[in-house]
Design a protein around this nucleic acid. Structure first.
Lengths: 135, 135
DNA sequence: TTATTATTGCAAATGATTTGCATTTGCATT
DNA sequence: AATGCAAATGCAAATCATTTGCAATAATAA
């Protein structure tokens, strides 16, 4: 991650965003990042968050996870082992699951179609335990 | 599909939207639907498309596929056998693939986690043949 | 120290989607 | 066929996430 930042200047804001992302186990919105960052850097601006995130995505450090049906993007650090999630359609909670049955399939499909596969998305939707209980 | 529409009134606009969707093999945007519909119903309004789509999604007739990173939703008819797609990150072309390795996995995960799974998303990203050729 | 340019904050712009409201229209009941 | 009611519609305006212009600030190289 560090090495990818070469060419960039030091930035307290960017460090803070990275630190926040490191502590998440699920993707979060720019607004969530903004609110957390503001606690320590009160004058930080939302557009700065967007710009930092954009750069981190470009550098391959952060992953954009546009999936919930609430029209807002969510972001997470790219890690060695990527994760998939179960997403509650009621409360939008994202619950990491630790399997990815797709590696071998990717190769098979790439061979068959000539499509140069660089990534994939796999998500499950439904109701989490909490929301099922609540009726 | 028909049966799900009971309680709704007849609507030329809705019929047209359904007819358009029936002829697609990939999800399309509201704007695309709008442009196609306008050819035969010139005074139809974009917000009507949105409202029709919203209703069809609520009725379970249409599926919202928010996935491309271009910040616009895409819609497709819910069919007996759902599809998955390979999506070109360059030209945004969506190429249907005909396998879905997830059914058994869904059951396994549902058992293990108590999550009531109602759906899933599986998409592959990369470069399609055309875009690979173009350099 | 100075020049260069990335980074930032703020306000305004953008663009997809949603909503308010008055009008039209489908359909059930006279 | 006439009437009433609510769904469906068109249009314009509002909303909301995201992007952008611009001037000010700050990191780094010379």
């Amino acid at each position: 991650m560090r090495q990818k930042l070469e060419g960039c200047r030091a930035s307290k804001n960017r460090d803070k965003v990275l630190q926040i992302l490191e502590h998440q186990n699920c993707p979060i919105t720019t607004e969530e990042i903004y609110n957390m960052a503001k606690e320590e850097i009160p004058k930080i601006s939302l557009s700065t968050i967007y710009r930092i995130i954009e750069k981190l995505v470009t550098l391959g450090i952060v992953n954009k996870a546009t999936t919930l049906n609430d029209n807002r993007a969510r972001y997470e650090l790219v890690r060695e082992t990527h994760k998939h999630y179960m997403i509650c359609t009621k409360c939008h909670k994202m619950i990491p699951i630790d399997c990815c049955p797709l590696e071998e399939l990717e190769n098979k499909l790439a061979d068959e179609t000539g499509f140069n596969i660089t990534g994939h998305k796999f998500e499950l939707y439904g109701e989490c335990k909490d929301c099922s209980v609540k009726h």
